[in-house]
Design a binder for these strands. Sequence first.
DNA 1: TACCAGCTTTTTATCGAGATTCTACTTCGT
DNA 2: ACGAAGTAGAATCTCGATAAAAAGCTGGTA
Lengths: 245, 245
Amino acid sequence: MTNGSTEPGQSKGGKSTLASSVYQQLRDDLLRGALESETKLRVEWVVSRYGAGASPVREALNRLAAEGLLGRHDQRGFFLMPVSAAELEELTRTRCWLEERALRESIAHRTAEWEEQLVLALHRLARAERRLPDDPTTNNPEWEKLHRAFHRALIAACRSHWLIGFCDQLSDQASRYRLIAQNAPGTGRDDLGEDRIIAERTLDGDADGAVEALLNHYRLTAAMCMERLAQGYDPRAGKSQRGRK
Amino acid sequence: MTNGSTEPGQSKGGKSTLASSVYQQLRDDLLRGALESETKLRVEWVVSRYGAGASPVREALNRLAAEGLLGRHDQRGFFLMPVSAAELEELTRTRCWLEERALRESIAHRTAEWEEQLVLALHRLARAERRLPDDPTTNNPEWEKLHRAFHRALIAACRSHWLIGFCDQLSDQASRYRLIAQNAPGTGRDDLGEDRIIAERTLDGDADGAVEALLNHYRLTAAMCMERLAQGYDPRAGKSQRGRK
DNA sequence: TACCAGCTTTTTATCGAGATTCTACTTCGT
DNA sequence: ACGAAGTAGAATCTCGATAAAAAGCTGGTA
């Protein structure tokens, strides 16, 4: 990887290849949880779903596996990485370590331009709708993108594209878990408020305060996912049916 | 993924695929610097060198690019990531951040089994020859492997396979730079001594001391690479000819 | 029932050829 | 001479078919 979500690809000009196109679509679907009902990703299945030959699909799958978004066993194909409470715990732990360092460095080396990008990201996030207007049980993919952009903007000044890439990667992983918990509506959480506090303290140069708020943000999210996970979560069950006795 | 050097592959039993085989060989050659004379990796070239079809080679290249060991431009193939002083600096910075955290966590959660693995890794490293017996200007690949294993053993108890994976990834990157500097012989550095001190303090539970020694270890290595880099380093020049006026 | 061998079906992994795109060079016009 | 358009060559990317491996199935045996 490098780095998780950084797809250098063809940002400017150059036409994309089929492999990259499939990679992008698959990646989006993975992060949006659209494939949680599958456990194995058969090549033929992906081929027929995204309309490309086996070779490009295979390349896309290889990239995703290298990023840790998929698993792979030689001669046995690709599969979705299983979710577990232990993995979520480890993930959250690591994320807190890395994001704390990144945020502190970012604050320590802040520039005017970075601050502006940050308030911009926050503004855009505030404008977006948390859930889909027509279906309040489903997350708004646009909001997810902006939320991710906000958190990336926070650490953008840390002077290490490696660290940013790692944080992105962990953020991708967390997405999968997050949407398991978040599609249980009415949890009464004020995401935007938390993000606002983080940004506020960050812009004030209050590193300790900002870090504290950020980590609480992540830990609270993780705790909610954990709760949902403990209630028994079956990926194969259609759409977010809570518990079952 | 995941993580740089962790190739889950077929550690136990399962037969390997051609793609994985090419991936491994290419990766080894990259880390040993055997390909520094190339700037672009043409598929045909790799095909004829490792004896496999274009499809497996292509998959291997995709994995390496996802790990950051190669670069890729759509419709324009794969290329070796260029080396630069700025990149080395960023790399070292990030590495110190992550390894410090990993080592501290490892010490904080040490177990008897981990300590034993650590002394074992140090012992094996001490037994290996630094350079090739018959050609003192070339690094001993076996020593490189053991050195890497030692540093991984240090942080093995940090309770995050993510963090371990990231450290591996950065370690891979550093390898490329290291062998540029290290194949200038007679620099009169006592690598083993440094490693011994690190291990000693680690086993004593002296986190601050161990971290200090570890970071100095990395920073010294980086400084040597930097010096070599500043003297003007031309990848296309055959083998380690220093400077040129 | 539990178990194991051998056959059938499904899926993965690989090859080789062809279509598309980029690169370098030549040619033409000003 | 300089720069733009066009052209031959090389490289990448993609497809369809084939070989190889795993998963599933059937039937017979203790």
